[in-house]
Amino acid sequence: MQVKDNTFLITGAASGLGAATAERIVAAGGKVVLCDLNESVDAHAQVLGEAARACRSDITSDSDMQKAVETAVALGGERGLSGVVHCAGVVSVAKLVDRKGNPADLDAYAKTIQINLVGTFNVMRLAAAAMAKNSPGEDGERGVIINTASIAAFDGQVGQCAYSASKAGVVGMSLPAARELSRHGVRVMAIAPGVFETPMMSEIPDEAAQALAAAVPFPKRLGRPDEFARLAEQIITNPMLNGEVIRLDGGIRMQ
């Protein structure tokens, strides 16, 4: 599959990894539908021009995401929807038992799972159903799904039970989904980023962010969103990448 002249659905596209991926796809001649709850997604689509459409969407909503998929299919014309890069998600930090001896909030845990894991499944199922209707290309390929996991799925830190569990679920879905969708010619991959320069990272203190950057073996800095986008582009164009999770982390292993 090539990026040029194909249409991709990007979630979490108002900023960070999703925004960078949308920019890279448009620069390579592709078209994008940008999904995000943040109203700034409209402005980002305008900056990208005629190749982009904005769709204010909640990834956990059946109707919202069905509308987004239909928008992408329409934008793609005869080619339909060629791929999804799912970047939307939330970070949550909460200890099972806090300093006062209180247990973690169950609703907060469930919300993280609902957005990061159930939301991923929702996007996958609707996009896969649309791509299965595409005419097969070379090797019978009809589409590609790229989900965003996290190194926290493997190296979860204290306070990351909810976040790590949600991202481990994304990892766990990759292979069975790839096996199932192989009969439709749809590949499934996941990227597990390390510490990146995103709005999520801005939520932690500068001192903590600097410590994380210093812990990266090489390059000794936070990852840049375009580096995620470059990997997403490689996955799109390389048909042998399927059913796998790729760590993109500079070699860091969280403690």
Rank of each mutant, 00 (worst) to 15 (best):
M1C: 10
V3M: 03
K4S: 14
S15T: 08
A22Q: 02
E23W: 02
E23K: 07
G29L: 07
K31Y: 04
C35P: 09
L37W: 15
S40A: 15
A43V: 07
A45E: 09
E50P: 10
A52C: 05
R53A: 13
R53Y: 09
R53I: 09
A54V: 10
C55Q: 14
D58W: 09
I59T: 12
D64H: 12
M65W: 13
M65A: 09
V73M: 00
G77Q: 01
G77W: 02
G77V: 00
G77A: 02
E78V: 01
G80N: 01
S82Q: 11
V84E: 02
V84C: 06
V84S: 04
V84A: 08
V85L: 06
H86V: 05
H86I: 04
H86C: 05
C87D: 02
C87S: 10
A88Y: 04
A88C: 08
V91G: 09
S92K: 00
K95H: 12
L96H: 08
V97C: 02
K100R: 10
G101C: 01
N102K: 11
D105F: 01
D105H: 01
L106A: 09
Y109T: 00
K111Y: 10
T112N: 01
T112K: 01
T112C: 06
L117S: 08
L117H: 11
F121W: 15
N122I: 03
M124K: 03
L126G: 07
L126A: 07
A127L: 12
M131E: 07
M131R: 05
A132P: 04
N134M: 02
G137Q: 14
G143A: 06
A149N: 04
G156A: 15
V158Y: 08
V158F: 09
V158C: 05
V158M: 11
Q160A: 15
A162F: 04
S164W: 07
A165R: 07
S166Y: 02
G169E: 10
V171M: 09
G172A: 12
G172N: 13
L175M: 15
R183N: 14
R183I: 14
H184V: 06
V186N: 03
V188K: 11
M189W: 01
A192V: 06
F196P: 04
I204N: 01
D206G: 03
A208I: 14
A209L: 06
Q210S: 14
A211T: 14
A211Y: 08
A214E: 15
A214Y: 10
P219C: 13
K220S: 13
R221V: 12
E227M: 08
A229W: 02
Q234P: 06
Q234D: 12
T237W: 09
T237V: 14
P239E: 03
L241H: 09
N242S: 12
N242V: 13
E244K: 02
E244N: 00
I252D: 08
R253V: 15
R253Q: 14
Q255I: 13
